[in-house]
Write a protein that binds this DNA or RNA. Structure first.
Lengths: 138, 138
DNA sequence: AAGTTATAGTTAGGTCACTAATAATTTTAG
DNA sequence: CTAAAATTATTAGTGACCTAACTATAACTT
């Protein structure tokens, strides 16, 4: 059945993409997921953990643990907000900032591979359909 | 950039789909991933763990652990192959077989939601593009 | 027949992701 | 102004996923 096929394809693509990313990121000593958190900080440094939750679309304990792991690697530091002592803000270190270019390169590589042999028109259509699907999910 | 957008959309869709599945499956006392393993057995009972690895596209230890969890729930049983003592074959119990209909219902529900407002023609095109992407990944 | 190689599965240890329960702060409301 | 409610983050515990290192069995190889 068509719908089943689409679901299975999506499933395969997402799990395999994740696996492939993971291999690529291994060279940079990163795990899949960590790249995403760093990406948010590259766009806007000093985010709070709640802000990261929302942007990453995951739960608070997940962010706590990821932040812990990234801090251990020396890629970020945590600093208490001075006006609201509940809040922890996350800042990039130089090492964290320096990963932006190589990670982007890995992403681009993976993307290009994923979308090869798909024309520009098709990509635009694909984007539209995926946007519709995304909207359906929430 | 178009390609970045597509990657991000795929990422969002797959993680949110997974999350939503997980909630739906919670009612059946299943975790996301376990449904998939059961599905392979519904199609063909008595698979070996290696066969499950290949069909699920995951690693051997993952299957070991999932099988362990499903056995604890009483949904499957493990039986040694008599001709080749290295091999363990996995069989459904009645409880495992009885989950097929309810799980399929959850799947269908999720799928219909995901693809709502997408026409039949668009779905066929979508399938074609996803197939191309899948082929690109391996 | 004995030793090497290949195959099937497990164990150990790591990360991401979740829920539930908790602590420490604001903020809000009576 | 104080008690209740909301917010931010953590801890504990679970499971899916991974890699690396291991055991047990089977199949070659010479």
């Amino acid at each position: 059945m068509l719908n089943d096929e689409i679901r299975e394809l999506l499933d395969k693509i997402s799990s395999q993409t994740r696996r492939n990313y993971n291999h690529l990121l291994h060279d940079l000593n990163l795990h899949v997921g960590q790249d995403n958190l760093l990406c948010k900080l590259w766009r806007e440094d000093g985010l709070t953990q709640v802000e990261l939750c929302n942007k990453l679309n995951c739960e608070a304990p997940t962010v706590t643990n990821m932040v812990k792991a990234l801090e251990k690697k020396g890629l970020i530091i945590r600093r208490k907000d001075c006006t609201d002592k509940r809040i922890t803000r996350i800042f990039l270190t130089d090492a964290g900032r320096n990963l932006e270019a190589p990670v982007n390169e890995k992403w681009r590589k993976q993307q290009d591979r994923l979308l090869s042999d798909i024309t520009l028109d098709e990509r635009m259509l694909l984007r539209r359909l995926l946007k519709q699907m995304e909207a359906n999910l929430f």
